[in-house]
């Protein structure tokens, strides 16, 4: 499997990573090599193997539906870059 420059740009955009144009060929080669390395797994016959969703072979523990968290807004907002009227402020997003 070989990733081209546009695939690298697309992946970088999805991950919101700014990458230097000149570094794209290196990323493309490195990522392709990683995919090829993992690709070896496709050669293994897994017909008898049950799919594994988690390495711990246990079920999820459940929590009773009872309020256990108190309001700590002031503490959380003390470390936020900007707040106003109880809201976290972020650079304007318009759809």
């Amino acid at each position: 499997m070989s990733l081209d420059a546009s695939a690298v740009a697309h992946i970088a955009h999805l991950a919101r990573l700014g990458i230097d144009e000149s570094a794209v060929p290196d990323y493309a080669r490195n990522l392709s090599e990683i995919i090829d390395f993992v690709e070896q797994l496709s050669g293994v016959d897994t017909g008898d193997v049950e799919p594994l969703a988690h390495p711990l072979e246990m079920g999820q523990r459940l929590r009773p539906d009872e309020v256990s968290e108190t309001d700590q807004r002031e503490r959380f907002q003390a470390i936020a870059p900007a707040t106003e009227a109880g809201l976290y402020l972020v650079p304007r997003v318009i759809e």
């Binding site: 929590r63 256990s68 968290e69 807004r73 959380f76 907002q77 109880g86 809201l87």
Partner: peptide, 23 residues
């Protein structure tokens, strides 16, 4: 439910902003 799906914060409607948003 009384609380969130993955935390014990209340889901009551109409609270002051971010007073029911835990870590």
């Amino acid at each position: 439910t009384r609380t969130k799906i993955f935390s014990g914060a209340s889901t009551a409607y109409g609270a002051e902003p971010n007073t029911q948003a835990c870590a």
